[in-house]
Amino acid sequence: MISPEPTGGDRPVQAYDLMILGGGPAGLTAAIYAGRARVQTRVLGGTLPGGQPSRTAEVDNYPGFPDGVGGGELAQRFTAQAERFGAEIVPEMATEVDFSERPFRIRSARSQYRAGAVIVATGAVPRPLGIPGEEEFYGRGVSSCATCDGFFYQDREVVVVGGGDAAIDEALFLTKFARTVTVIHRRDTLRATEIYREQAFANPKIGFIWDSVVEEVLGDKTVTGVRVHNLKNGDTSMIRTDGVFVYIGMEPQSDLFVGQLELDPSGYVLSNARQHTNVPGVFVAGDVQDPNYRQVVIAAGTGAIAAMEAERYLGKYP
């Protein structure tokens, strides 16, 4: 990693009643509620406008869309609704926070802020495999975004690592481009929802390697294969492939809050049922606090709670 410059120190401080860190379903729903309550709010949207739905081809389980909705479209609708109620959404990412006293202090690469209350909704990012070759070939055959990069694999062979909803959804999406899609999963059954399993098993382009983990990504200029280890019989084999799509789950994006907020051992921000963190005035919503469900509808729900609690807090401690 490149160490970034000291940040934000060169701009005048901007003050808001409420700062929302994260522009996914949780942060944007919080912004809709805060906007309607006329709370002066700024949303730091981060690197993925609209959050994780943006990188999902199709969302079929968000209520109100009986025919499903493109993930990108859903994200855009959230954004438009938040903007309609006056939310200022900027493509910045918090780089430093100080929650030790009020007003809370937040910095990004180009700005510094003070806020009466904060909602942490920074979400989760794809968990890397953590194996040799993965980082080296990132962008040259290793990807965690099928919607972004599927195009580059027309008539080529790819593997998808993982067996959950995201892995199978993206494997299905990749069959639009790739000649073959091989799902490599560490167990002998898929964790994915039944409807995904049915579709995957019915798709002639999709094959499976069970009980196996990928140990190394191989290649020269670009990816040429993976080394796969079978956990049941101990065998190791080489699989030829042009692309490796990694969908082994997500990890909470909470590094920034170490020492500021109470986190669980996996890094999820701890909260009570009303989305309060251990710091009064700092609330949390969405996948950064949800190790269990990680659904758009639940992220939106916790975002609404966090905003209503923040309004109440700001009323008490303006």
Partner: peptide
């Protein structure tokens, strides 16, 4: 870029 890449506009902008 690709037109279906939600991360791309940030790099372009």
């Amino acid at each position: 870029v690709t037109p279906t890449c939600p991360y791309c506009p940030q790099a372009v902008v």
